[in-house]
């Protein structure tokens, strides 16, 4: 996609996301009495955004390609439990635990990808199946192997430094990973043919295949990416917090989808950008965590999230229409 060739910022997919971000902050400042210095100084929402963002990036790419992956909700606890069981309970080297955690991600991603390419079943349904199955496998596995549903883990110093460190006492190192991954994805998606393939698939899979794009390979790769990212987030959480528990991750499903959509990605595929996903995640994190800094009663937070999502969707829609009318020949999606 030649997103960067377009000079006009307003027509870029992330324009809506950036405006949403500004609108949300303005709303909190005006109605919630937020002290901006306090808000920007706090690590909590950046940490929240980083954990969510690493999952949202590949999910967003999947959505650009016209697929969906909700099994991430089970992959996050799967990642943290597998490293905790292997390296914590059985006391094997931490590298083995990491390999198992990430390997499990590859495996589940492959299953999702193969099923999505070999059958005509929508990926929402396929990954719903793997979601429930993985939840069960993680729970049963942990209870059968360790007799417990939460397992402690003590990682060696070098692993903590790379994956589970608190910078400045409160910023999780995963923020650095998030930024690095975002940069990497920007490079791949917007500057290599691979990115064009993803967009083309979301626009029209048949013609993409006819144009010689290895659609199956791309789809499977994307599913593997999203499952591995999810188990990576789980793994980092286990290393940082020295423990893992079975439940958890379900809220990542909706949170990640909402972040991606706020970031301007079309659920029906073919439209979006990595920076949009990045800003969408930031926006969602501020909405979600920023409410702690306001005078607004915490009880209303879900309502605000819902309304914000709907507004963001409306706004992105207008921007997209603007973008499409401005260059009708280039965007068949």
């Amino acid at each position: 996609m030649d997103t960067f060739a377009i000079g006009n910022l307003m027509r870029r997919p992330e324009a809506g996301a950036i405006l949403s971000l500004i609108a949300v902050i303005a709303f909190y400042v005006i109605f919630g009495g937020v002290n901006l210095v306090n808000l920007f100084g706090a690590a909590s929402w950046v940490n929240f955004a980083a954990n969510l963002g690493i999952v949202a990036l590949p999910l967003g790419l999947l959505m650009i390609a016209g697929e969906l992956d909700i099994s991430i909700g089970a992959m996050i606890p799967a990642g943290s439990m597998s490293i905790a069981i292997v390296s914590g309970y059985y006391g094997m080297p931490i590298v083995v635990g990491m390999a198992v955690a990430l390997g499990l991600g590859v495996l589940v991603g492959l299953v999702n990808g193969l099923l999505a390419t070999r059958t005509t079943v929508p990926s929402l349904i396929i990954t719903l199946g793997t979601l429930v199955a993985m939840q069960g496998i993680v729970l049963a596995g942990s209870v059968l192997l360790t007799g417990n549903a939460s397992v402690p883990l003590s990682a060696p110093d070098w692993a903590k430094t790379i994956f589970g460190q608190l910078l400045g006492g409160s910023y999780q190192i995963i923020i650095v990973w998030w930024i690095a991954l975002t940069a990497l994805f920007v490079l791949i998606i917007h500057y290599t043919p691979w990115g064009n393939w993803v967009f083309a698939m979301g626009g029209d899979k048949e013609s993409a295949r006819n144009a010689g794009i290895p659609t199956n390979k791309v789809t499977i790769t994307l599913f593997v990416l999203s499952a591995v990212s999810a188990s990576f987030v789980g793994m980092c959480g286990a290393i940082l917090f020295n423990s893992a528990q079975v439940s958890g991750g379900m809220n990542y499903i909706f949170n990640a989808v909402v972040s991606v959509v706020v970031g301007g990605v079309l659920l029906t595929g073919g439209f979006g950008s990595v920076m949009g996903i990045f800003f969408g995640t930031l926006t969602f994190a501020i909405v979600n965590q920023g409410i702690y800094f306001t005078d607004i009663d915490r009880n209303w937070s879900s309502l605000i999230i819902g309304v914000m999502l709907l507004l963001a969707v409306l706004m992105n829609n207008s921007f997209r229409k603007l973008a499409m009318t401005a260059r009708p020949k280039k965007k068949p999606a």
Partner: peptide, 9 residues
Amino acid sequence: IGTMFAVMG
């Protein structure tokens, strides 16, 4: 999803 969050809240 939006209305779900809104109704929950």
